[in-house]
Design a protein around this nucleic acid. Sequence first.
DNA 1: GTCTATAGCGCGATAGAC
DNA 2: GTCTATCGCGCTATAGAC
Lengths: 192, 192
Amino acid sequence: MNLKDTRTQILDAAQELIQRLGVNAISYQDISVAVGIRKASIHHHFPTKDDLIATLLDRYNAYFLRLVDNIIAMPIPADEKLRRYCGLFEATLSSGNHDKACLCGMLGAELATLKNPLVERVAVFYRNNEERLATILNEGRNTGVFGFPGDVKAMATLIFSLLEGGILIVRASGGVEQYRAVIEQLMQLVKG
Amino acid sequence: MNLKDTRTQILDAAQELIQRLGVNAISYQDISVAVGIRKASIHHHFPTKDDLIATLLDRYNAYFLRLVDNIIAMPIPADEKLRRYCGLFEATLSSGNHDKACLCGMLGAELATLKNPLVERVAVFYRNNEERLATILNEGRNTGVFGFPGDVKAMATLIFSLLEGGILIVRASGGVEQYRAVIEQLMQLVKG
DNA sequence: GTCTATAGCGCGATAGAC
DNA sequence: GTCTATCGCGCTATAGAC
């Protein structure tokens, strides 16, 4: 199954490019080269760039949150769930041609250049992730594997911020090894 | 002293725009409108866009690191130093017309679109900040005000990542209040 | 040092043939 | 559903008058 329909190929190429370069640095031309069709053909599938980004965000949010919910549903301790959650971001960084950030992390930096249906989709991604993190943190506290002080909600935002921020920061020099060290440090902090 | 020379006005306007919108979303036209001159005049001061960004990065790095070093030199406990360091980022977020991220945080997202003299300047900013943070963390551990587990170097990267990431994330909804809550949570974690 | 004018290019988007 | 061709625009950058 290495022959996907054109629409999917367009979305895949656009996502890869945006995760590496940002939405304001890529064009229909770039995507058309990656897919091997002409840019008029892309306009047939996605009339405007905002149509493409909106579809991309819906697909990304659904895909990523399904992975997260699968982790949460596993019969494993909360610390192992947190580690696997962090692993999703680490996998993003190392996947494909490398140096890919989270799609919504990139769009977060460029947020003020987006129109409103797109801004809301990014905000929803953040909200959903922080909510899932809070679930894991609460479970870990209740079962005694987590002993961190302070507020669960603030802690969830803190973890999400460092995962999104770290994936951007380490691309400048330390790479995935530095990222892994940060996650390891986080695990120690959470256990308290 | 509200009348600066044109060169400084150009740098100020460019910095404000990039911190809000990103380097790939702004143009000489945008800067010229903000300053009130024609874009050909900007090319007189900074022939190419890369010249402008390079100058901007040098100025920003020097300015920010001077603030940090001033904090480190103060005769106050390490936890107070860390709080003030975080305050620099919080002040960035709330300053001017609001929703400004760290200049190098924005460029970190767009890093793969930058040419090499600029990439290196961003990497240096990261390195210098993590080094300063490590200094504060070591001091806090030695004086007993910090009790966090794990490695100082990893902890410095973790803190820098969450400050850079958080400033991007909270712009989507929670704003500066959410940012303050994250910093407060961090302070509790560091004290251990 | 600032201006007008323009070159040269890439962009998003559309029309219409096949 | 993909193509060629093209429109109109904004971009970086330059030339040359004042």
